[in-house]
């Protein structure tokens, strides 16, 4: 137990947390955009999976950044497709989302087999590339805290830094620009922006495209950094954890960051634990991030209920 605690408080563990958090954070930001726009994007999972495979295959033939962009576009395209079915053909957004997820599970295995010449499990025999890590040697020169900072922040994926800045970027767009105002208005009470002459469906379209783009980046990070190469079902429910993180983060970008970090922490824990806790079967440890998601959401809904009760009590 002691050695597990020591492992958790080590910089290597925190480094792993940042790494596991990155795809979750990107997907959560994607979920946030569509959720605020009024459509619960249950397809984050499928979008990530398709984008991951797209990025891996493209990276075989093109530089890494082109591969990442192709992942982004794959996600965005799926978002636009969902918008088409939801807004034009009036299909239920949840059903459309599940259609994308089902398509992703079968479609990626099929496409993988085509690309690898028959391998239905992994892309191990494809020479796919990785996203370069950003090394920050100057951090080490800082006296006292330098080595710790270096171990913590040097060597992360380019997309990790992007995700960090994206939290601020998304916040800025949502709360400081007219477009954010429109998006939040459309999600909460579409009659109001409609009466004000705002093209409601166009706003919804762009929120789904943005949502897909972030999920696409999450997929690229997963298959080009956290793991290099594609494995079937490699998203393993991260898209749904991200949906939980949107709610847990109180539908706010900073909350999304904190919630993603929480889930990233438990995912990292599930990676580290098997080496220290031998009496617990590995499968059980693997379920920790999902159990934590459920518990966190229950506590959150209980808390917000209490909060609204307290609010009315003070008002009366």
């Amino acid at each position: 137990m002691i050695d597990l605690l020591l492992a958790v408080f080590s910089t290597t563990f925190l480094f792993t947390v940042i790494r596991t958090t990155t795809p979750l954070l990107l997907a959560t930001l994607g979920g946030l955009l569509s959720d605020l726009g009024g459509a619960l994007n249950v397809a984050l999972e499928g979008m990530m999976l398709i984008a991951a495979l797209t990025a891996v295959i493209v990276s075989v033939y093109a530089p890494w950044y082109v591969a990442v962009l192709s992942g982004l576009f794959a996600g965005a395209l799926l978002g636009a497709l969902m918008a088409l079915f939801h807004l034009r053909f009036k299909a239920d957004i949840i059903l459309v989302g599940f259609a994308v997820n089902i398509l992703a599970v079968g479609g990626t295995v099929f496409a993988l087999a085509m690309a690898t010449g028959g391998d239905k499990g992994t892309s191990i025999n494809l020479p796919s590339k990785a996203i370069p890590a950003i090394h920050l040697p100057f951090l080490e020169a800082i006296p006292l805290v330098g080595p710790v900072l270096f171990q913590l922040f040097s060597g992360h994926s380019t997309l990790t830094w992007f995700a960090g800045f994206a939290v601020f970027g998304v916040w800025y767009v949502l709360y400081r620009t007219p477009y954010g105002l429109w998006l939040r208005g459309v999600g909460e009470y579409p009659t109001a922006p409609e009466a004000a002459g705002i093209p409601v469906n166009k706003v919804r379209l762009w929120s789904l495209i943005g949502s897909g783009a972030f999920a696409g980046l999450a997929g690229a990070q997963l298959a080009m950094f956290n793991y290099v190469g594609f494995t079937r079902d490699m998203t393993a429910g991260r898209g749904f954890i991200a949906l939980g993180a949107v709610l847990l983060g109180a539908r706010h970008p900073v909350g999304a960051l904190l919630a993603a970090l929480l889930f990233g922490f438990f995912e990292a824990l599930a990676i580290v634990m098997p080496n220290h806790v031998r009496w617990m079967p590995g499968e059980m440890i693997q379920t920790i991030p999902f159990v934590v998601t459920v518990i966190a959401l229950i506590l959150f809904s209980y808390r917000s209920r209490r909060a609204s009760q307290l609010k009315t009590l003070t008002r009366i």
Binding site: R176, P178, L181, R184, A195, A196, G197
Partner: peptide, 24 residues
């Protein structure tokens, strides 16, 4: 047709926001 969680000024300006650059 008002968005309940928005402030008064956000509701009034919605759709015709004064801008400076891309900022509201």
């Amino acid at each position: 047709s008002l968005v309940p969680s928005f402030t008064v000024y956000e509701n009034v300006a919605l759709g015709s926001e004064p801008r400076s650059g891309i900022r509201f």
